[in-house]
Simulated assay, not measured.
Amino acid sequence: MNIAEFLSPALWLNPAAGPLYVQLRKRLESGIDSGFLAPDTPLPPEREIAALTDTSRVTVRKAIADLVGKGIVVQKQGSGSYIAPRQSRVQQSLSRLTSFTEDMARRGLTTESRWLERGLFLPTPEEVMALGLAAQDRVARLERVRTIDGQPMAIERASLSTAILPDPTSVERSLYATLTARGHRPVRAVQRISAANLGKRDAELLHVAMGAAGLRIERISYLASGAVVEFTRSLYRGDAYDFAAELQIGPEDEGQST
Rank of each mutant, 00 (worst) to 15 (best):
R141I: 05
E46K: 14
R86S: 11
R146V: 14
A209V: 00
E254W: 06
P123G: 04
F36C: 04
L116I: 10
A240F: 09
S93D: 11
F36R: 15
E112H: 04
G69D: 06
G250A: 13
S34R: 13
R144L: 12
Y82N: 01
P125V: 04
E156W: 09
G119T: 07
I49L: 04
T55F: 06
A4D: 11
A227I: 01
K62M: 02
L43N: 03
I148E: 12
V90N: 06
I32H: 01
L215P: 01
F100A: 08
V145L: 08
I49F: 08
Q91R: 12
A154G: 04
K70F: 01
L43W: 07
E246V: 14
L24H: 10
I83C: 11
L206R: 01
P186K: 01
A203C: 03
Q256N: 11
V171S: 08
A181K: 09
V58N: 12
S81Q: 03
I32P: 10
R114P: 00
Q77D: 07
G238Q: 02
S174F: 12
L24Q: 07
F36H: 07
P39S: 07
Y21P: 00
D242M: 10
A65N: 14
H184F: 14
E29K: 10
K26Q: 14
V229D: 13
D167I: 04
T111F: 00
E246G: 10
A196Y: 05
A163Q: 14
Q191S: 15
N197Q: 12
F121P: 08
S88L: 12
G78P: 09
L28P: 08
L52S: 05
R89I: 15
L247R: 08
R201H: 02
A140I: 10
D66L: 13
R86Q: 09
L122E: 09
G108T: 05
F100C: 03
F100E: 05
G78M: 04
A195V: 09
E172T: 11
E102H: 13
Q87R: 15
T41C: 02
L24A: 05
L11W: 05
T98D: 15
G119K: 06
G18W: 06
P251W: 01
E252W: 02
R146E: 13
L116N: 02
E143F: 13
N14I: 01
L160T: 13
K200I: 00
D149H: 07
T147A: 15
L120G: 02
L122F: 14
G255I: 02
V229P: 12
I193F: 14
T55I: 05
E112V: 05
G31E: 00
G119E: 11
R57Q: 15
S194H: 05
R106M: 10
A38N: 00
T178A: 15
S221Q: 05
L142H: 10
E46M: 05
Q77L: 11
